[in-house]
Design a protein around this nucleic acid. Structure first.
Lengths: 192, 192
DNA sequence: AAGAACTTTCAAAATGTTCTGAAACCTTGT
DNA sequence: ACAAGGTTTCAGAACATTTTGAAAGTTCTT
């Protein structure tokens, strides 16, 4: 019995649907709307460009929703426009390299979430002065501790930002290398 | 003019409020409810244990909400119960080490989000067979590509999980070290 | 420049999430 | 065992997000 004969044509389609559902679920626990994640999953798992109508039909969503989701995915840089000769429709294709994908997502999340928070933290820090308080009064004491806490948080967020910057600047291949190293390292650890 | 004299008592309180608001904002872009993030921010920035009524009063939220949020924070392991002698109330204190905090959050998110997705991906992978298809037909071809995509995604998610495991197992001090190294490295890069 | 093909926008409706407040439930001291 | 003090639960209200579908906008072709 050949390996492929064990699977009917329905299997592929079913697997695609499950993949889309799983990815949609995942997305919704991350600030990405379920539909947007599903559209991305669809484009990724099919591996071929689709037009708005294809997406609408397969996911059973409205034209407006499909349009919005595709546009957002373009903004995130995880989906690209594709033009087909002799066809006026626009087609959309998902990034197929999962590491490049991860970098794009990371980059976007840093830009949207880390940066603004860091800005707010700096402003907050300035409210209570740039230097350690001089006095030894209880109030000076408390002010000092407060500033220490804000500074700690700033350091943390800055570090996360820098870590992300490092990761997003690396070529995707480098990340793949890191991944295997991590993998090997971990396997070793478990055998001990 | 001394440094501390430039700041009235109102400054500290205002800075605390702004910190709480910023943290709440941040939390809501991450699947954590705004109130839960605010309660955490309050306990962190005050640096002293508070009881349910204190939290209700300062954040102007209902008893039910305060109770739910505190319980969730306990589940996440970022807030601890504190008992005061001669007082029957329970008090709650936030983890003050921001690295330990980060580890707790990472651990919990992996448990809640990465694990289930990985499980789903394995199931999906099994729908289309454990081995590469033998034939060269178009269908076999497509099945092969589909499996490659699912496998890529599995590898990615596994790597993320392992990376997180590494980070959460390290003592917080080690992370602090990594952070400074990253910092120095980056500063160097910018001066070049 | 008119028409056809396609895309984007937007206000209203559907859906989903969070919050409240009162009642039920524990737990401890007398 | 009761009462006082404290915590949790939960159904409904308030709030926020997402989706729809139709209208307006854009761009290409003839």
């Amino acid at each position: 019995m050949s390996s492929s004969s064990r699977h009917s044509g329905a299997d592929l389609s079913a697997a695609q649907d499950r993949f889309i559902a799983a990815w949609g679920q995942m997305g919704s626990t991350w600030g990405i709307s379920r539909t947007m994640a599903e559209v991305h999953a669809l484009l990724y798992i099919l591996g071929q460009p689709l037009c708005t109508d294809d997406v609408m039909a397969r996911l059973k969503i409205s034209r407006g929703n499909a349009s919005m989701s595709l546009r957002a995915l373009l903004d995130w840089g995880v989906v690209a426009r594709v033009h087909k000769r002799g066809d006026r429709k626009e087609y959309f294709a998902a990034e197929q390299d999962v590491w490049a994908l991860t970098q794009a997502i990371l980059r976007e999340r840093v830009k949207r979430e880390i940066r603004p928070v860091l800005g707010a933290l700096y402003e907050i820090r300035e409210l209570t002065g740039g230097r350690a308080p001089s006095g030894e009064s209880e109030r000076a004491q408390r002010l000092g501790e407060h500033n220490r806490r804000v500074d700690d948080m700033i350091e943390l967020v800055r570090t996360l930002e820098q870590l992300s910057a490092k990761l997003t600047e690396l070529p995707p291949d480098a990340l793949r290398g890191t991944a295997s190293a991590l993998q090997a390292d971990n396997d070793l650890g478990e055998e001990r």
